[in-house]
Every structure is written in C-alpha cells, then in structure tokens.
Design a protein around this nucleic acid. Structure first.
Length: 274
DNA sequence: CTAAATACCTGATGGC
DNA sequence: TGCCATCAGGTATTTA
C-alpha cells in the first residue's frame, strides 16, 4: 500500500509525464471515492506547472488551481497510452497532451480527488497537517515538545498526522524497533533522548524506503510487478511470533489504538521513566 | 483541549 | 468446494 515513500516515488514517476503538459479532459467513471469527486470543468485546457507532495497527498498544480490526490490504502496512479481500455477499479483518467493518460486505480476507494483554487496549502485537508518527517522542522525536540500532554501510546503519537505526516503503521513499528522503544509507552513519558533516537530512526527508515521505492513501482508506464522491496527489510511488522533478527526473542503482537503492532520484548525495553 | 470509537471499502485469509 | 466472518489500513468525523 502507498506509504509516504511510495507516494513520493509515484510523484517522481509521474512528474515527467505531467510537467508542462496540458490537461485535455478528465474522465471520472466512478465518482464515489472517499469523498464524491467533483472537479471543475476548467481543469480541461489548463497546463500543469508543478507536481509536488504534502504528506501523502500528491499535488498537481495547473494555472487554474491544484488537484489534490490521495491514494488511500489501495490507490495507484499509472501512466498509460491513450485509449488503453480501463480495467476493474480504474476510476479516473486524466488525459494529457504528450500522448499520455494518467490513470487512477483504487479497489477500496479510500483515495480522493479534490480541487483547490489558489494556494493548495489552504485546503482544509492540508492546512492542519503536521510537519514533514524529512524536513528540518522535524526533530527529537519537536516530538518531545509536542507530546508533553499526550497520554496516548508513543506509537499513536508518531502516527498522528497532525503531529507528523507520513508515518503509517508499518513505519511506526519499524522506527520504534530501531529506536528500541516500547510502542505502548505513553507519549508524555518518553524522554528527550529517546525522541531524538526515534526521530533519527524515522528519518532513516523513510529515506531508505524512498531510495528503494523505485523498485516497487519501477516503471509506471510498463506493467506492474509489485514484489515488496520492503518486506525483506522489515524487522518487526508482520512478524509476530517470529524470532527477532537482533536477539532471537519471539516478537510480540499488541493492539494499540485499534491498530496491531509488533515489537521485540527484549530489544525494545525503553518505556519511559519510573 | 485530549482521546477513543466509528465510518468508509474491497480483497485476502481462516474457519467450518 | 463454498460461504461467512474477520482483518487490514489512512484519516476525517463523531462522541465522550
């Protein structure tokens, strides 16, 4: 599923086919996504001037405004040749000059398309988002100071998009393993030093995943192939009951905030003070 | 303000 | 083999 690294990989993959091209038409075959898709007619005829990302949103900016695309859990964007017949769950086509169509597929329809005139960052979906984990504002200090009143598990804290964007269930579990922190620890009890380690771990893991992200979604124009680049580097996620790669202890599963998590009871010992 | 629960959706998986 | 229940997962929204 698309995590921040895959969204970024998608962005990089589609950018060359969009930049400086004009939108000829948009065909919405299934408007019932997370929110009903309702795009202005004047997008047709507009020219793409920027392709960026905020959190897990892909922003396609034209001279009339910005298209905000979220891939949800199962969404994907592919570049296809014009007139390629749509397959199951191919919900939206953006037909471009340059002989390419951008095609959105999303079986579970948790994804979304929005349009915002003017500054996209003022859109209600973006305006309250937390910091980008790979930008400078994100740090151990930031995690520390933003968690002083928070009793939720530290795992939930770093998964909160109002705090920091892009850290999903997988990366949260992996980062906590790398930082040797027990996922259930109350956020407000995690020390500054531990948050420093955690911020470092999040950065490192996301950056590494982006680096290999190209593997997952290698060529957007060609066929798919989706063997997880990632699965092999997972230390805890999805490995409940299996031996820790570091110490061979049996990895434990737990439910935190309705989300399953896995950790090593012997490596991840940090659980706050007292 | 924080936090926990709920809703959205389909495909994969496990139990019988 | 078929069918039903369960789970997965991001995040806005509702409820406490």
């Amino acid at each position: 599923m698309p995590e921040l690294p895959e969204v970024e990989t998608t962005r990089r993959g589609i950018e060359p086919f969009l930049l400086d091209q004009s939108i000829l038409a948009i065909e919405v075959r299934q408007p019932r996504l997370r929110w009903p898709v309702d795009l202005p007619p004047n997008l047709a005829g507009s020219k793409v001037i920027n392709v960026s990302r905020r959190g897990k949103y892909i922003l396609i900016t034209t001279h009339v405004g910005t298209l905000l695309i979220h891939l949800g859990m199962s969404g994907s964007l592919r570049v296809v040749s014009p007139q390629t017949p749509p397959k199951l769950h191919d919900h939206i086509d953006i037909k471009l000059t340059g002989d390419h169509w951008l095609r959105f597929n999303d079986p579970r329809r948790f994804g979304s398309f929005h349009f915002q005139k003017g500054d996209a960052h003022e859109h209600w979906l973006l305006k309250d988002l937390g910091v980008e984990p790979l930008e400078n504002e994100f740090s151990g200090d930031y995690l520390f100071s933003s968690s002083r009143r928070r009793k939720v598990a530290v795992k939930n804290h770093i998964m909160d998009g109002k705090i920091v964007v892009g850290v999903g269930n997988i990366y949260a579990a992996e980062s906590l393993f790398m930082a040797k922190i027990r996922p259930a620890t109350a956020a407000q009890r995690v020390s500054r030093l531990a948050y420093e380690n955690l911020a470092q771990a999040i950065r490192m893991i996301l950056a590494r995943a982006i680096k290999v992200g190209g593997t997952t979604l290698r060529d957007f124009v060609g066929s798919d192939g989706q063997p997880g680049y990632f699965s092999q580097s997972l230390n805890v996620y999805g490995r409940e009951g299996q031996p820790c790669r570091e110490c061979s202890s049996t990895l434990k599963g737990q439910i935190l905030g309705q989300r399953s998590t896995v950790y090593c009871p012997s490596c991840q010992t940090f659980s706050g003070w007292r």
